[in-house]
């Protein structure tokens, strides 16, 4: 593996000074890689992402322990726009575009990092997402879910980030659209050289594009490995990929069994 771009070391995030949402999370994102962070609702994936992008301060949450290293610099508890200025851009889960602005204005509003060629960047974003170029005078509020997601990724890319954080890319979108978006994520890496950290519930899709995956549960990372290894793992198969499901209903005892076995990876 090449150089590390982002490293989380024993990260702990506490909301309102009492509720611990994430504990002891460590993960590495190598330069130029695509890393997937998997987990169910409430596992702490989004909190981790918000901690990286500097948003947790607004939710009355704090990084109480651990560190976030980005290019060797510690960036935890920095203001969001300063983190963007360092080259990390987030595609949030909800309200990800400026709805009353047109597509062109959405891209225009973004503050591009110093040193990047803005016009060239916008052109390459339009090349990546032809749909955006076609609809550029349309207000973002009238876009379909998939187009909106493209615009969200596009406007994040307009910051000229080195690291793109994507929260729940697949949520609420048709499988075909998700496939297309995932292809575009792969192209983003190739054409713009952007590193990607994907947060997903849909492990199947995420593992298809990722080089490495982490599984979170109850605020901790319980499992990590290459896509092949994760796919092969029985628990992952059962709980995230749905293999073997259908005929067999998951009984309480099996879940308990899983919980017990999970501890070994904690």
């Amino acid at each position: 593996m090449s150089d590390l771009l982002l490293r989380l070391e024993g990260l702990e995030v506490v909301y309102h000074r009492v509720i611990t949402a994430v504990q002891g999370v460590s993960l590495d994102v190598p330069q130029g890689g695509i890393v997937a962070l998997l987990g169910t609702n409430g596992a702490g994936k989004t909190t981790t992402l918000r901690a990286i992008s500097g948003f947790i301060g607004l939710d009355d949450a704090r990084v109480t322990e651990g560190a976030i290293h980005y290019r060797g610099e510690r960036i935890e508890n920095l203001a969001p726009h300063r983190i963007t200025a360092r080259g990390i851009a987030l595609v949030p889960e909800r309200s990800k575009v400026f709805e009353n602005l047109t597509i062109a204005e959405n891209l225009e509003a973004v503050v591009t990092r110093r040193g990047a060629n803005r016009r060239q960047l916008v052109d390459s974003i339009y090349a990546l997402f032809p749909a955006l170029a076609r609809l550029r005078a349309r207000e973002a509020g009238y876009l379909s879910g998939g187009e909106r997601q493209m615009l969200a990724i596009g406007s994040a890319l307009a910051c000229a980030p080195d690291l793109l954080l994507v929260d729940e890319l697949s949520q609420g979108l048709a499988p075909v659209v998700v496939e297309e978006l995932m292809d575009q994520i792969l192209r983003v890496r190739v054409e713009l050289g952007t590193t990607v950290l994907l947060v997903e519930q849909n492990a199947h899709i995420a593992l298809e594009v990722a080089d490495y995956g982490y599984v979170m549960e109850n605020g901790r990372i319980v499992l990590d490995g290459t896509p092949e290894r994760l796919r092969a793992h029985a628990d992952i198969q059962e709980f995230y990929l749905g293999a073997g499901g259908g005929q067999r209903r998951r009984s309480y005892r099996e879940v308990k069994q899983y919980r017990r076995s999970r501890r070994w990876y904690g």
């Binding site: 948003f55 963007t84 309200s95 602005l101 509003a109 503050v111």
Partner: peptide, 24 residues
């Protein structure tokens, strides 16, 4: 103007604006 557009953007969704590098 770019700053005008940013102003509208910030008014509409300050969180996202901050994330897109706009100093609120």
């Amino acid at each position: 103007t770019r700053w005008g557009i940013r102003m509208r953007a910030a008014g509409q969704n300050p969180l996202l604006a901050a994330q897109r590098g706009i100093g609120l």
